[in-house]
Design a protein around this nucleic acid. Structure first.
Lengths: 202, 202
DNA sequence: TGTGAAGGGGACAGATCTGTATACACAGGG
DNA sequence: CCCTGTGTATACAGATCTGTCCCCTTCACA
């Protein structure tokens, strides 16, 4: 990456291409979006695109990596600063998720979409989606462990299921208020594991 | 449909085309599968395909309708015959779902995938996906109502979230055992609403 | 000042995709 | 017996998509 001297614009173009890929594939899917549209959205020519990435598949994989990194940085950081105690942070999980699910242009989880479009086509992309989601699940488990939950593995997976379910349900029904009910369900599931004072203000 | 006399083969070809569409789009996505592949899988020529359907979009829409009808017939009928009391039937929801989620070739919910690929491209397909999922949610609510649940609307939506979450989570992680934990979560959520004797044998 | 990487602009090849056209076969009903 | 509906087989038009190539400019750095 830094083996050769590169101007400031170089990384800008690359990042613009990745952002354009994320934006367009989120809106219309991976196979429905062409290389030309991505290059145009990034304000770049195809030449530049193929200078940075060897193929569309490589571009998509890089975009998913960027998306994963951005998501975990933003989401988990927001959760970590959202409450004073581990229990409060755990509870605020779905408050943080609400912003994502209600964002304009939200069109379902990008990894779920990628897994659906590339199974049997690009094992590499499918594998990365699996890994990215596994890391999210593990982050949930760390939160549970910090909160001294009795069975962190089980509760984390249940919260993960609800997180994914809210994501898919809002995506396909368009009703963003589902997040409220998802949070309520999460609180019910957490209740047996947490001290009473953290759960009571439901 | 029956306004003109038609041979037995006519509906066979049509159904074969719809089944091939469901099979291939489930495996590889909607935009990644071409008309030729669908016709070949159905053992039919393109001419026949375009005789029954005016466009790929119309074919996909018809396939989604067929899938929806098949799914509701099969899934809800299985649930309705799975227990003697409404409570038992409600609990067995995730036992019935387990078979679907563990089936070979399972690649996520077809409606979720369609919604992700056709938002901003085909409003008609997107709308049908929303309607189909809403009907599933309403079926859950009917089950809750039959079981004399206190707040059927809320519990049904929570079960729906878990159902969708298990579907997405298994799809992207490949771990079918997630269904067990989804059922456990569902039982926990149902517990406050149901008589103790139905919930205890967890 | 010269070199070479990065990028613009655009043409192009080759593949694939949707949808149509042509020519023929076959079955059933008036 | 002919007509219509349905089907096969295949070629084709037109669009689009991925990926390459050529020629030009700009700019950092040696």
């Amino acid at each position: 990456m830094t083996a050769f001297p590169q101007t400031k614009d170089t990384t800008d173009k690359r990042a613009a291409l990745l952002d354009a890929t994320i934006l367009l594939t989120q809106a219309r899917g991976f196979h429905a979006v062409g290389i030309d549209a991505i290059a145009a959205e990034a304000g770049v020519t195809k030449k530049t695109l193929y200078h940075h990435f060897r193929s569309k598949e490589e571009l998509i994989l890089a975009a998913l990596r960027r998306y994963d990194s951005q998501f975990r940085n933003r989401f988990l950081r927001a959760v970590e600063t959202s409450g004073e105690t581990p229990c409060q942070r755990l509870i605020s999980l779905f408050d943080v998720a609400r912003a994502d699910f209600s964002a304009t242009g939200f069109n379902g989880c990008l990894f779920v979409k990628a897994a659906g479009e590339f199974r049997g086509i690009s094992p590499e992309i499918l594998r990365f989606c699996t890994e990215a989601k596994t890391l999210v699940l593990e982050a949930f488990e760390t939160l549970c462990r910090d909160a001294d939950v009795r069975e962190p593995h089980i509760l984390a997976e249940q919260l993960f299921i609800i997180y994914e379910g809210a994501c898919a349900a809002i995506h396909v029904t368009g009703r963003t208020d589902i997040t409220d009910n998802a949070k309520a369900a999460a609180m019910t599931l957490m209740a047996p594991y947490l001290p009473a004072e953290d759960v009571s203000p439901a």
